[in-house]
Simulated scan of single mutants.
Amino acid sequence: MPKFMRPYIEGIVDVIGDGHCGFRAISEHVGLTEESHVMVRRALIKELKEHRNKYIEVNASEDRYNYILDGLLPPKNPSSFAPPDKWLTFPDMGHIVASCYNRLVVEMTTLDIGVSENFFPLRGAPPINPKSNMICLALIPNHFVLLSLKDGCPLPPSSTEWRNHRSDEAKT
C-alpha cells in the first residue's frame, strides 16, 4: 500500500491466492465464505447481463463488454488456480461490483501496479452508512486482500466513468 495509507488500515483479510482472490475478498466482505467466490461471480454476471446496454455504454464497446463477461465466467475447474483472464480486474469490474452490491468499492494499490480509485454504484440511492458498506480491496502484485480502513482516512478519487454514466439518483 502507499506508505501514507498504512496508518489508516485497521485490518487485513488475506484470502487464498489462487487467482480467485478478488472474488474471495468480495465474498468475505458480503458475509459469505471464501469458498463462495463462484456465487460472487454469478451475482456479477447477473448484474452485467441485466444491465447490458449500460455496461456496453460504460465500456465503450460490445467487444469490451464480452471480454469482461468472459472474465467473470468461472474457469472450467473453479477449485483450481484461475488463469489471469479469469481474475477480478479494475477498472473493468469496479462499477459492476459496486452496482451489484450497492456499495462503494475502493481499489487501493501502488502506482507501479495501477491507479487507486473509488467505484460508486451506477444507479440507485447511495448506501445509508457508506463506511460499513464500503468494500476496500488492496491490489498487491497479482493478489487482492480485503482491507478495513479507519474513520477519516483519505480515499482515492472517483472513477471518471462513474461521473459520466451515473443515474440521477446515484448522483445524490
Rank of each mutant, 00 (worst) to 15 (best):
102 N>L: 11
124 G>Y: 07
132 S>N: 10
142 N>M: 12
112 D>L: 08
35 E>Y: 09
59 N>S: 09
76 K>C: 08
126 P>K: 12
149 L>F: 06
26 I>P: 00
33 T>I: 05
81 F>V: 11
115 V>M: 12
12 I>A: 03
170 A>K: 03
172 T>S: 12
45 I>T: 03
1 M>R: 08
147 L>N: 02
153 C>F: 05
15 V>Q: 01
127 P>E: 06
71 G>T: 03
110 T>H: 09
89 T>Y: 00
95 H>S: 03
49 K>M: 14
116 S>V: 02
112 D>Q: 13
34 E>S: 15
77 N>C: 10
126 P>H: 06
148 S>Q: 14
106 V>Q: 01
30 V>Q: 04
81 F>K: 11
13 V>S: 13
162 W>N: 03
53 N>D: 15
115 V>F: 14
165 H>W: 12
108 M>G: 03
162 W>S: 01
149 L>I: 08
22 G>M: 03
47 E>S: 04
143 H>W: 06
11 G>M: 06
76 K>G: 11
137 L>D: 00
6 R>F: 12
33 T>V: 07
38 V>S: 04
20 H>R: 06
85 D>T: 10
4 F>T: 06
117 E>S: 12
48 L>M: 14
37 H>V: 05
30 V>K: 02
110 T>L: 09
55 Y>W: 08
135 I>D: 00
100 C>D: 00
42 R>G: 00
54 K>R: 14
117 E>M: 14
44 L>D: 00
38 V>T: 14
25 A>M: 08
7 P>N: 08
104 L>D: 02
13 V>M: 07
154 P>V: 07
118 N>S: 11
169 E>V: 11
46 K>D: 13
125 A>R: 13
42 R>V: 01
128 I>A: 15
14 D>G: 01
55 Y>P: 02
81 F>Y: 13
113 I>E: 12
5 M>G: 04
128 I>L: 15
114 G>L: 06
172 T>F: 10
169 E>Y: 05
169 E>Q: 12
152 G>H: 06
33 T>S: 15
172 T>G: 08
4 F>S: 10
62 E>F: 10
86 K>C: 09
156 P>M: 08
106 V>F: 04
51 H>P: 00
83 P>D: 09
111 L>G: 15
121 P>V: 05
137 L>I: 02
96 I>F: 05
43 A>C: 08
102 N>D: 11
12 I>V: 15
83 P>A: 13
75 P>Y: 04
61 S>F: 13
157 P>Q: 11
172 T>H: 11
10 E>C: 09
2 P>K: 14
84 P>C: 06
73 L>G: 01
79 S>K: 15
150 K>F: 08
70 D>A: 15
32 L>M: 13
45 I>R: 03
66 N>C: 10
93 M>F: 05
90 F>Q: 00
97 V>L: 05
138 A>N: 11
87 W>Y: 10
97 V>T: 10
101 Y>L: 01
124 G>M: 06
152 G>R: 07
73 L>T: 08
2 P>L: 13
100 C>L: 07
65 Y>C: 05
27 S>M: 01
